[in-house]
Design a protein around this nucleic acid. Structure first.
Lengths: 119, 119
DNA sequence: ATTTTATTAAAGACTTGACTTAATTAAGAT
DNA sequence: ATCTTAATTAAGTCAAGTCTTTAATAAAAT
């Protein structure tokens, strides 16, 4: 019986340290947890480990065990989901905006004809 | 003297109700606050109002006063900022991945030559 | 002027999130 | 076997976020 352990990707992205981890993995490719800890001297290894857990549960990163080490890497597929959401939302607005724009254009022309410019 | 009242856009997107509001505005174009309240019968108008404040401070929506009404609409420019972040992060990873892939390809060929297939 | 409509603000309760310290797991080296 | 290395888990604290109830504001209608 598998429980829903999944983490919302939007929530996972809300934390700046977690985004920094993702950016680190994006530019360095694949790193063991220790290498990630080293990049965040301000944050304790335990705190980073907890962030990695959230990123794992959100499927934004993948983890591979090699001996005692845990190798982490980005999962760009999950980022694509985010990209899709943004693109669709933006696109729908732009369609609406263009439609509205045409209405306003017609209104304006009517206005020009009646010289109703004061308000 | 302008205070930093700004809200992190990633944090603003983390809440599902706020994303629903954005999606509503994306498909309906421009709505007065009341029309938004009506779409969320489960959430109180006050709660929705607080979400709208967060979206405003994150510059994800724009607000225009018309008499007692407040008209809300999406700001697609701000959405583009996310899109950019995602695309850049993804792209850097894919470059890294391709580079790594080539290394593995070479490793594999070496492996084939020495017949070291067992592990 | 007062009432209604539309919306927000303020204050408090409750929940969730991030970090800390201490303990635990598990593989590898000695 | 035990020590070391790599990393996580558990438990507790404190801050931040969300929702509720109760005002407050401000324009429009009466």
């Amino acid at each position: 019986m598998l429980y829903n352990n999944d983490m919302d990707m939007f929530v996972a992205l809300a934390d700046p340290t977690r985004r920094n981890i993702l950016e680190l993995l994006a530019s360095r490719g694949e790193l063991p947890a220790t290498a990630i800890y080293e990049q965040f001297p301000v944050v304790s290894p335990q705190a980073v480990s907890q962030h990695l857990k959230v990123l794992r549960e959100a499927h934004l990163v993948e983890m591979e065990k090699r001996a005692q080490k845990r190798l982490y890497r980005l999962n760009p597929q999950k980022l694509s989901e985010f990209e899709t959401w943004v693109q669709q939302t933006k696109q729908r607005w732009e369609e609406r905006f263009n439609a509205l724009d045409q209405v306003l254009e017609r209104e304006k022309q009517k206005g020009d004809q009646t010289s109703d410019v004061s308000k």
